[in-house]
Amino acid sequence: MDTADRDAPGFVTIGLYTRDEYLFVDELPLAEQTVSAIFAASSHGGKAANQAVAVALQGVESELVAVVGDDTYGHEAIDSLTGYGVRTGRVRLAEGETGRSVMVVDRRGRQTIVNEVGVGPGLDFSLIEQCLASTPSGSWVSIQSELPGRLNTDICRYVQHSGLRLAFNPSPVTGTLEQIDIVGQADLLVLNEGEARSLLAPGDGPLDCELTDVADRIFERWDPWLLVVTAGAAGAFVRSKDIRASVPSIDVKPVDTSGAGDCFTGTLIGSLLRGDDIVDAVSTATVAAALSTQNRFCYPSYPSVQDIEQARERHAVPGGDG
C-alpha cells in the first residue's frame, strides 16, 4: 500500500488463492441425494488470499506469497488482490491451472467446500525465504494446512530464528506429527470449535466438555502467546498468559459463512498490528467475521474499518468478559 511504512511490522501470508465456484441451494444435499441449485456464481478466495485481504482492509501492509496458474483466473487473482491493497510481487504464475474451490451454500448460510488446489502447492521455499528475509522484525507470518506439511515446517523453523511472529490456523486438522509440531511453535493459534476438539486426542480427556475447557487444555498443552477459539454466533474464547475471556459476537442473519474464519484471523492480526489490545482486537475480528456472513462470497464480502466501527457502535459491542 502506497501510504504504508515499509519499515513497520506488517503481515505476510503464505498459502493458496482459489477461484471459488458457488452453488446456492435451499438445503445442503445428503449423501447420494441430488438437489437443484437456485443459482450459481464465481468469486475469489483461498485461505491465504482471504487473510491477506482482511489485513489490508485494516490499513496494514499485507503481502501474499502464492502460486497461481498462468491462466485467465491466475491473472484475475493478481489484479483482484492488488485492487484490495495486497502486495502481490511474490505471487508467481506457473504453467497449469489455478486452484479452485466448489462451494455449496444453503439458505441459512451453511456450506460444504471441496478444494482442487491446482498449481498452488508448487511453492518453492527459496521464494518464501526471499520474502521473509526482507520482512521487518515483529511482523506476523501466517500459514494454514493447505500447503504440504514439510513446507510449513520449513517456514516455521525460519520464523523461529528471524524476529518474526507465527500465526497458525491448522485447517484442515490432520493430526500429523508435522502439524502438531507447528501448533506447538505458533505464537498465535486460531481455531474454530471443530478444529479445537479435533486437536485433542482421546487421552487428553473427554471431548464433550465445554468449549472453554477444551481451550484451556489446548493452551496448557501447547502454551502459545495467544490462543483464540471461535464459536460462530457465540463469539470467541481468548487465552493468553494474562487473559482468559469470552468475547461476544453480534446478532446477524447469515447469508454465506464461507471465508468468515479467514476474515476473523486476518482482522485480528491487522488489529493487533494497528496497536489494539488483545481483547479489543478479538472483538473487532468477531464483528468483522459476523458482518462478512451477511454478504455472499469470501474476501469480497469483508468489511472495512469504518463498517466494523459503525457495527460496533450500532450493537454496543463490549470489549469482552473476563
Rank of each mutant, 00 (worst) to 15 (best):
N115W: 03
I155M: 09
S145N: 15
S137M: 05
V141M: 03
Q130A: 14
P148D: 08
Q144W: 02
T112I: 12
W140R: 06
G163K: 11
G122M: 11
V119L: 09
E146P: 11
L151D: 04
L166Q: 04
G149K: 10
Q111V: 04
A133D: 12
L151T: 08
G118W: 06
T135I: 01
G149C: 03
L132A: 13
S162G: 06
C131D: 09
V141N: 08
S139G: 08
G122N: 15
S126C: 11
Q130W: 07
P121K: 12
P136D: 06
P148C: 12
S145H: 10
T153H: 02
N115I: 14
S134P: 00
S142W: 05
V159Y: 03
S145T: 09
I143D: 00
G122S: 15
S137N: 09
C131V: 15
T153P: 00
V114L: 08
A133M: 12
C156K: 03
G149L: 05
P121Q: 12
V119W: 11
C156N: 07
W140L: 10
C131R: 15
V119F: 09
V141I: 03
I128M: 01
I155E: 08
P121R: 14
Q160A: 14
I113D: 01
P136V: 05
R157W: 01
T135H: 00
N152S: 05
C156G: 05
L166T: 10
F125A: 06
T112D: 02
S139T: 08
S145M: 01
E146M: 07
C156F: 03
Q130H: 14
N115M: 10
T153R: 12
P136F: 06
L127T: 14
P136C: 02
L123K: 01
I143R: 02
S134W: 09
V114K: 11
S142L: 15
H161K: 13
G122R: 15
C156W: 00
T112G: 06
Q144Y: 05
L164M: 03
S142M: 13
V117W: 03
S142Q: 14
E116Q: 10
C156P: 01
D154P: 00
S145Y: 04
V141K: 01
G122Y: 00
V114P: 08
P121T: 11
V119N: 07
A167S: 14
T135W: 02
L151C: 06
G120V: 07
P148W: 12
I128L: 01
R157A: 11
F125Y: 10
Q130M: 12
I143K: 00
T135L: 04
E116T: 13
Q160T: 08
L127G: 10
G120L: 09
Q111F: 09
